[in-house]
Amino acid sequence: MQIPIKPIFVFHTAARAGSISRAAQELSVTPSAVSQQIQTLELQLGVALLAKAGRGIVLTEAGERYFSMIADQMEQISEATATIKGFRSVTSLTIRATPTLSNKWLLPRLNSLLDMHPDLEVRLDGTNEPTDFRQEIVDIELRHGDGRWPGLFVEGVAEEDFLPVCSPGYAAAGTLRPEDLPRYRLIHSAKSQAQWTSWFPLAGVTPGDRWQRVLFDRSHMAIDAAVNGMGIALESTLMMGAELSSGRLICPVTSPPPLRLVTQWIVCPFEHLRRPKVRTFLEWLRAERDAWQASQQSPEVTHLRR
């Protein structure tokens, strides 16, 4: 059997791009030429590989399986061809992460990954929507949740301490007792796993039925609201490290009760761990995580929690 190399390559490009038109631009051909090559491959294989979805495309079950079987080999062929030509090819890495982790933790550190690996082209997709790895071209995800996703590789990013925080102009550091907080405006992150209703029992406080509060559906919005003096937020040291170290946020409570959770998780199919670009990202992420955890043991950061 003669292997249809060109149609396979065109299919791989379209599946990775998630679009016939984007694949055509990348290959410098017309969209109809891309469609014809994919149809040739489908006829030879005897199965449909792609289906239309609005203006884009999605992989069929057979297409997803075929793509997963050839993806690593096609990348190896591309890298080998580029090496023989005398230059290193650009490798595209697609990361999906929650908006708050993207904005507050990942983005400020991403430059070091790009400097270490100049051949790596990163696409960062900031959303709370979990990835359907069977339908979406995503290499790895940093997902918010409880870590229970059977059938996928799952590793916690880091343990996070959740602290009451506010602007120094709203309340001074260490001047309030836990029982004082219900008298202040409390900022709520609606989707956070750490809520005031959990924190108050840990502090031995029974608040009244009516609170002065403001709610946001993203933690990065709650953090920014606290920085702007809107009230007191209950947020993660992983997400607000820059604001704490700069003094834009302080903990107004003396000896707050400990509340430690893992809420962010590295998630991907196990077969993605064989991809060199995924292993490169994981090595970098773990090193950054370890450095952040070491910084949390410094006397200055420990003092913020008291």
Rank of each mutant, 00 (worst) to 15 (best):
A51K: 09
A173Y: 00
Q36W: 11
L124C: 07
K52W: 01
W196G: 11
V138W: 03
Q293T: 09
D161C: 09
H220A: 06
G46R: 02
E159R: 14
V58F: 06
Q37W: 08
V227T: 08
G241Y: 07
H144D: 14
L107Y: 13
G231M: 02
A62M: 09
G174F: 00
F9T: 12
T100G: 03
G46Y: 02
G86S: 04
Q296M: 06
Q135W: 04
T237W: 07
E61K: 10
N128F: 06
I3L: 09
S102D: 09
Q76G: 02
R183K: 15
V301A: 09
M1I: 10
R96S: 11
L43P: 12
L244R: 00
G231H: 02
A62G: 08
L50G: 00
E141A: 15
F281V: 08
L45E: 05
D161G: 11
H144L: 14
F11I: 01
R96I: 04
T302F: 12
S112P: 11
P207A: 12
E129I: 04
V29Q: 06
A71L: 11
G86C: 02
P118F: 11
A53I: 03
F11T: 01
G241H: 08
L27P: 06
E235M: 10
I38P: 06
D146Q: 15
R134M: 10
V157E: 05
P256I: 05
P258L: 06
L142H: 06
A158N: 05
V90C: 15
I187D: 08
L259F: 12
S198I: 13
H12L: 02
A172W: 02
R260W: 07
R286C: 03
T197H: 15
L261F: 12
N111Y: 14
V278C: 00
G247Q: 00
H303W: 13
A82P: 04
